[in-house]
Design a protein around this nucleic acid. Structure first.
Length: 265
DNA sequence: ACAGGCTCCTGCAGGC
DNA sequence: TGCCTGCAGGAGCCTG
């Protein structure tokens, strides 16, 4: 699918690459593949101008561009008809050859748009490890000697990418671990429980379409349902579903943190 | 090197 | 009814 035109409305944030460069590079480029790296959506593209030294077409076109979208808190990547009403906070529009448009909408501007030219830059990998596939040994090694709280460590994208505030709280609850505990003090058994819990939480959240806490919707405008599975997040004062104790909320690592004082030790 | 705090931004909820 | 304040969060930046 080819991009006929690219329009970037905002000329400051939320751009990581200048809007002018993105408009120019994306116009005429062709989508090859869209995949996920942590919290980033990575679009592999072949550029508009063929490179003389590009490998022959035998093995299919190789991507030479990547458009990387981070949704932040409130960012949305929508697929619409090009005639559809342009809602407020639309920062980018890509017009496709079939008459549809890909639109990036982000009220709070916490999202980020970046373009990589793979002829000069490395493909986007993300800084941390992928929590869904990380091996036990590698997972344990991440927290070895780390003096910060396990909650803060889970949120550190340089260690694990893709773990946000909700999923950190939910996986710590399922593993029975208190968020304030120093990461380095966790035993191997606890860390393994945490790794398994984190993978279960993330897999279930992905399956249910994410957590629609306020106005989150996916590319088709569909809400997620993982919020119905929350055991601690957003449940301050309510009884724990396992033991009945009141869920507590504290500030940790600058984020609201929810836990059950009885189940998590 | 690492840890923690501040900042960005806007919609929404709650209080007066 | 309407205004004002505070809160939510990811990640980059700054400070200790």
């Amino acid at each position: 699918m080819r991009i006929l035109a690219a329009w970037f409305g905002s000329h400051r944030e939320p751009m990581k690459t200048s809007p002018h460069i993105q408009e120019k590079a994306l116009t005429g480029a062709k989508f090859l593949r869209v995949h996920r790296v942590g919290k980033h959506i990575v679009c592999d593209l072949s550029g508009a101008v063929p490179e003389p030294d590009r490998k022959s077409a035998e093995s299919g076109p190789n991507p030479d561009l990547q458009w990387i979208v981070h949704l932040g808190m409130t960012g949305r990547l929508l697929v619409t008809h090009s005639a559809a009403e342009v809602v407020a906070h639309t920062h980018a529009r890509l017009t496709l050859e079939d008459g549809r448009e890909i639109r990036f909408v982000d009220a709070r501007r916490f999202g980020r748009l970046e373009l990589r030219d793979l002829r000069h830059q490395q493909a986007f990998q993300g800084p941390g490890s992928e929590p869904l596939t990380i091996a036990p040994r590698d997972f344990h090694a991440l927290f070895h000697g780390r003096k910060t709280s396990i909650k803060a460590a889970l949120l550190n994208q340089n260690l694990l990418h893709g773990v946000g505030n909700i999923y950190a709280d939910e996986s710590l609850f399922r593993a029975g671990i208190r968020p304030q505990i120093r990461a380095s003090r966790l035993t191997r058994v606890q860390l393994e429980r945490l790794r398994v819990a984190l993978q279960q939480v993330l897999a279930q959240a992905i399956q249910l379409g994410g957590s629609s806490v306020s106005d989150y919707v996916d590319a088709n405008g569909v809400k997620g349902f993982f919020q119905l599975e929350h055991r601690v997040y957003g449940r301050e004062g309510q009884p724990c579903r396992d033991c009945g104790a009141a869920i507590r909320r504290i500030q940790l690592a600058g984020r609201s943190t929810h836990f059950c004082p009885a189940c998590q030790r």
